[in-house]
Every structure is written in C-alpha cells, then in structure tokens.
C-alpha cells in the first residue's frame, strides 16, 4: 500500500508516492533525485544523510517519508543560492576540509544548523555538535577550521 506525501523541500512544494515504511532518505534519493544526502549506515550512526526537518537537524534515515507530510525539509542541494555558494561551502573548499567528500553534504547541513543556533562556537562545541557526522578521511582538523572560518565570515556579514 502506497501513500502520497506532500511536503516542501528546499522551499519547493513537492509530492511523491512512497511505501509507508520508506525512509525520508530513500524518498529524497529515490523519488526526488536528491542524492546529496548519503546513506553511510542507515542507523543514525554516521550523519551522512543529515537534513533539517522544520529547521531541526535530523538523520533522514531515521525519519519516515510519510512523516514529511506538510513539513519543511532542507538538504545540501538547497544551501547555495544559485551560483553563490554558502560561506560554509566556500570555506570547505578553501580550507581543504574535504577529501573523498561523502560525509561533506551531511557535515555542511549539520554545521549550518550549528551556526544558526550558535554563531560563535568554540572548537569544542563544533567538535561535539559534529560528533554524529563521521569523517574517515580528514581527522576533522581541517573541518573544524573551515567551520570556524565560515562562522567568522558569517558574523562579519
């Protein structure tokens, strides 16, 4: 039995049909073609599928697609404004905060949620906030620096 879901993704109204036990991650990737969110584990342990649900950071693998009915979803695909990258996206490139890049969309979405709540975080706050976003390439050093650089830029703006 399928259900129809009407929701908002990155500001756009979208409808899709899905199975009731389908995750929001599968719907984003499979139904809507938004493959920026990645499945690293499917159990909420890696954060690669991070999106926001009504502004709240969540793992989209731990949300059912049907729960998105009438809600607002934001994904990495909605971070840049046209050709202008979000300061976090720019900072991640400038500070070499990505290697393979599989964790990057989730980390960017998570870091954006952090800076909206805490514009001037300590390194420790950044590290604890991002503890649910596994990165196996970088050792996190350059990620923390990039988040801080973006935060500084956003505070100046």
């Amino acid at each position: 039995m399928s259900v129809t879901v009407s929701t908002t993704v990155n500001g756009d109204s979208v409808d899709f049909v899905c199975a009731p036990d389908e995750t929001l991650l599968d719907a984003l990737r499979g139904r809507l073609g938004l493959t920026g969110a990645k499945e690293g584990c499917g159990t909420g342990d890696c954060g690669a599928c991070s999106v926001t649900l009504n502004g709240r950071l969540v793992c989209s693998c731990l949300v059912l697609a049907v729960e998105a009915e009438g809600q607002e979803i934001a994904t990495v695909e909605g971070m840049a404004a046209g050709e202008t990258l979000h300061p976090l996206q720019r900072a991640f490139i400038d500070h070499a905060a990505l290697q393979c890049g599989i964790c990057t969309p989730g980390i960017l979405v998570a870091a954006k949620a952090l800076l909206e709540k805490t514009p001037d975080p300590s390194d420790e706050e950044v590290r604890y906030w991002l503890a649910g976003n596994l990165c196996r390439c970088t050792g996190y050093d350059k990620i923390v620096r990039a988040v801080q650089a973006a935060a500084a830029e956003m505070r100046r703006a």
Binding site: D45, G47, R56, V58, C59, L62, L114, G132
Partner: peptide
C-alpha cells in the same frame, strides 16, 4: 542519547 541529529528526534 545519540548525536545532535538523533537529539532532533
């Protein structure tokens, strides 16, 4: 419990 993401739910 869990991560920041898990805390959201």
């Amino acid at each position: 419990i869990g991560s920041t993401q898990v805390q959201g739910r």
